[in-house]
Every structure is written in C-alpha cells, then in structure tokens.
C-alpha cells in the first residue's frame, strides 16, 4: 500500500514537507516515494497529503496504479477540450 510519483512530476517540492512518514525524497529526474515508508497517510490524515497538494494531474498514482488526480480534476479543463487545444497547437 503506497503512493507513487511518476515522471510527469514537475519537482515543485509541495508534497515533500507534508509527508508524515518522510517517504518522499528528491531524486533525478523527479521526486520519488519510498514504497516501504509510505503509509498512504493512514492514521495521520484523512487523505493522502502528497496527492492533496500536488498541482499536476496524473503525477501521483495510488496503490492500484490509478491517477490520484485524473485529467481535468484539478484544472477543471475537460480532457476532450484539452485534446482539441493540443491538436490546434500541433496543426499550426
């Protein structure tokens, strides 16, 4: 049972000081979570702290490998609209 930071992390440092288990550490190219130390904040907080402050959709996965913050959940941008916008930029 552990959360995981993946490569879309932008290294903003927001999660690191919040972790009650000191499981998050600076690494290259991105921060990582020590899988042995992570408790998913169980017993410390109602919600996983890293996933609650992370500003990047998809950068943190839960123990099932699902995005803790799926596309559109933080920015409010509907994923279809984002895809359209990206296609527009590509076509320029």
């Amino acid at each position: 049972m552990a959360y995981k930071i993946i490569e879309s992390c932008v290294n903003c440092w927001a999660c690191e000081p919040l972790c009650p288990s000191d499981a998050i550490y600076e690494a290259k190219p991105t921060f990582l979570i020590n899988q042995k130390k992570c408790t998913e904040c169980d017993g410390d907080f109602m919600v996983a702290q890293c996933a609650s402050i992370c500003p990047i959709e998809g950068a943190i996965l839960d123990s099932y490998g699902e995005s803790a913050n799926p596309a559109g959940s933080l920015t409010g941008i509907p994923p279809e609209r984002m895809a359209e916008a990206m296609a527009e930029i590509q076509a320029r």
Binding site: V10, C12, A14, I56, L74, T75, G76
Partner: peptide, 14 residues
C-alpha cells in the same frame, strides 16, 4: 519558492 498551496486558472505549473 517552487511550491504552491492554491491553483489559479491563469497559472500552469508545467
């Protein structure tokens, strides 16, 4: 100061 505690609709941290 890289960390932020809010999200603004005019900002993108990526």
């Amino acid at each position: 100061a890289p960390a932020c505690n809010i999200q603004c609709h005019y900002c993108n941290r990526k």
